[in-house]
């Protein structure tokens, strides 16, 4: 078991009413799973993903990540946890425009204690793995969307996280590019990386081993 959510509630107060963004979420993710979270707009998919990624708070409930009780941890400790074990992939790629492909992939390593030669080896490995060696000195604006997302995934993977969180990774891509990315995820999952993705697309969801449907912050089926 990699993480477990127990009776997670998250709400905002709007005009005296309590609006639930997450309503009594209960679920467990085991190592090696590939989970898709689906649901209509505003159902709380991204919020759930952010809670899992520890980027966002929740109001009530218990969250255990690798046997650490996240809900009792201090902000700093929590940040250390997600930096160590979680990689993020975004719909809009979110590459740093001023950095080259190589430097973008290298960035997470800068904040960990890796020597410069170690970093070089790790980035080279990623470039190799994703077949983008030839593009390492280009800037994000010089790449297609699909290529940018590849770099985004490479960046997420470079520090070998246990869990990849992907928020609509193919949302900005055309279908061919999207399919390539999904193939890649599948392959990563086969290699043992745990993945949780948020998606709108039934097709994408089929790559996963399990799908969670959300509606109004509530898990509809599991």
């Amino acid at each position: 078991m990699i993480l477990q959510l127990k009776n997670i509630f998250k709400w905002v107060n709007s005009g005296g009413n309590r609006v639930f963004l997450l309503n009594d979420i209960d679920f467990t993710v085991n190592e090696g799973e590939f989970i898709s979270i689906m649901g209509p707009s505003g159902s709380g998919k991204t919020t759930l993903l952010n809670v899992i990624g520890m980027l966002d708070d929740f109001n009530e409930g218990e969250y255990t990540f690798l046997d650490e009780p996240v809900h009792t941890l201090k902000e700093k400790h929590r940040a250390r946890l997600y930096k160590e074990y979680i990689g993020f992939v975004f719909q809009a790629y979110h590459l740093i425009d001023e950095l080259t492909v190589y430097e973008n992939i290298e960035t997470p390593l800068l904040y960990k204690k890796h020597s410069s030669s170690e970093r070089k080896a790790m980035v080279a490995d990623m470039l190799d793995r994703f077949n983008i060696v030839g593009k390492k000195d280009l800037f994000p604006s010089q790449l297609s969307g699909g290529q940018q997302q590849l770099v985004g995934i490479a960046r997420a993977l470079v520090s070998s996280p246990k869990l990849i969180l992907a928020d609509e990774p193919t949302g900005n891509l055309n279908s061919t590019q999207g399919e390539e990315i999904m193939q890649l995820f599948k392959k990563l999952n086969d290699e043992g990386v745990t993945i949780i993705q948020v998606t709108h697309s039934e097709t994408n969801a089929t790559y996963g081993s399990r799908t969670i449907h959300l509606k109004d912050g509530l898990i509809v089926n599991n």
Partner: peptide
């Protein structure tokens, strides 16, 4: 802002 957010997500501390 985007750069700041990203750097934080991929592991930068505030002091860095």
């Amino acid at each position: 802002a985007k750069e700041v957010g990203l750097r934080k997500v991929v592991g930068s501390t505030r002091s860095q």
